[in-house]
Measured scan of single mutants.
Amino acid sequence: MASDGVVVEIGKVTGSVGTTVEIPVYFRGVPSKGIANCDFVFRYDPNVLEIIGIDPGDIIVDPNPTKSFDTAIYPDRKIIVFLFAEDSGTGAYAITKDGVFAKIRATVKSSAPGYITFDEVGGFADNDLVEQKVSFIDGGVNVGNATPTKGATPTNTATPTK
């Protein structure tokens, strides 16, 4: 695992066909100046998982989280898009600690492993708008004895992609 920078880890949970599971997305290594904004994309298989919603985690402190935390689910493109932009203008609602960034709610549709993997990152910046190093650890849903650990090695991303 990367020793510096922010680590975004997609949790690994267990479920069975027809059940709804909650998959946490963790941030670790949050910089001392916090995270003022970030955007990134995960990939998944809508034939295996139906993403039914995404909720902000406990490290989102904006009293009205829909102003700073936004997501979009595109089953036709097989992606989930995340956007966080601190909304106070003063840094008061920045992410300042490690913990759960988001909770992905999904219904298991198939007995195949439900991988959720890193696809791309736009950027991560602290309260001074300084770009942060970030790496990703894939996860998803274990169905029966299947284990979604494909790509469990962190993917280092030093520069934003478009």
Rank of each mutant, 00 (worst) to 15 (best):
G53V: 05
T149E: 11
T155F: 09
P65W: 15
G34R: 05
L49F: 15
T153K: 05
A146F: 05
V143S: 11
P24H: 03
G11P: 07
P65S: 14
L49V: 04
L129E: 01
V7A: 10
S16Q: 07
A72S: 01
I104T: 11
A125F: 00
S110F: 07
A102S: 14
N156M: 06
G57R: 15
A85M: 09
N37K: 01
E50L: 06
E50V: 08
I104R: 01
S68C: 14
F69Q: 02
G139K: 05
A158Q: 13
G5I: 15
G11F: 05
F40P: 00
V21C: 13
S111L: 10
D58E: 15
K150D: 07
I73L: 04
D128L: 04
D45W: 08
M1L: 06
R43P: 03
P56V: 11
I95C: 13
I23G: 11
K97G: 14
T157H: 12
F136N: 14
V130M: 15
T147K: 12
V108C: 12
E86I: 00
G53I: 09
G123W: 00
F84T: 02
S3E: 10
F40T: 02
T90S: 06
A158P: 11
P56A: 04
A146R: 12
K109P: 08
F82H: 09
V143N: 05
I35P: 01
P31G: 14
P24L: 03
Y26S: 12
S68Y: 14
G53C: 12
S16F: 11
P65D: 15
V108Q: 14
T157A: 09
A36F: 00
D119I: 05
A36G: 13
F82C: 02
N142I: 14
K150G: 08
E22T: 08
T19Q: 04
N156G: 08
A106I: 08
F69L: 01
P154G: 11
G57E: 12
N127R: 03
V13N: 07
V30Y: 04
G144L: 12
K109N: 11
G18I: 14
A158V: 10
T96F: 10
V134I: 14
S110Q: 09
I54T: 07
Y74Q: 00
P24R: 05
V81D: 01
P46V: 06
Y74A: 00
F82Y: 15
R105K: 12
F136V: 04
A92I: 13
P63K: 14
G151M: 10
Y74V: 00
V41I: 03
P46E: 04
K78E: 15
S68W: 08
A146K: 12
F101P: 07
V134Q: 03
K12G: 06
P75K: 03
N47G: 13
T66S: 07
E131G: 06
T161D: 12
G151A: 12
R105P: 11
T147C: 13
D55V: 07
V8P: 05
D76K: 01
V17N: 15
K67Q: 12
G53S: 06
G57D: 06
N47F: 11
I54G: 02
A85P: 00
S3N: 02
P75A: 06
G5L: 10
T153S: 11
K133Q: 06
S68Q: 09
I116W: 02
V81I: 10
P65N: 12
F101H: 06
V41H: 00
V41R: 00
I60H: 12
R105D: 09
I116E: 02
F84K: 01
V25W: 06
G122K: 00
S88K: 03
Y44K: 01
G139F: 10
A125S: 02
A85H: 06
Y115M: 03
D76A: 04
V30F: 02
I104S: 04
P113N: 07
A85Q: 01
D45T: 11
G53R: 06
Y74S: 00
T90K: 05
S111R: 10
P148E: 03
P31T: 04
V30W: 02
T117G: 07
T96C: 04
R28Q: 03
F118W: 14
P24Y: 03
I59Q: 13
V7E: 06
V61E: 04
G5F: 06
A2T: 08
I23K: 07
G53A: 07
K133S: 07
V8M: 02
T20I: 14
L129Y: 15
F101Y: 03
N156S: 13
G139I: 02
R43Y: 14
P75M: 02
V130C: 09
I73D: 03
D98L: 11
P148Y: 03
G140W: 06
K133T: 08
V25T: 06
R77F: 11
T149A: 11
E22I: 04
A112L: 11
F124E: 00
D58M: 06
D4Q: 09
I51H: 06
A146Q: 10
A72H: 00
F82V: 02
E120Y: 03
C38H: 00
A125L: 00
D4H: 04
N142L: 12
V100H: 07
G122F: 00
T153P: 12
A112D: 12
T90V: 15
T147F: 09
A125T: 02
N142K: 08
F84N: 01
L49K: 15
P113E: 11
A92Y: 13
N37L: 00
V134K: 03
V30I: 13
T107M: 08
Y115Q: 09
I104F: 15
G122A: 00
D87V: 15
E120A: 04
I51N: 09
T66G: 08
D39T: 00
D70N: 15
L83A: 00
G123M: 00
P75V: 05
P65L: 13
A102K: 14
V108D: 08
I79R: 01
T117K: 10
V13E: 06
I52L: 07
T155H: 10
P148R: 07
T19L: 10
R77G: 06
G91Q: 04
K109A: 09
N47T: 05
A152T: 11
F69T: 09
R43E: 15
T155E: 07
T147G: 10
I116A: 05
N37D: 02
I35W: 01
V130R: 14
N127L: 02
E50R: 07
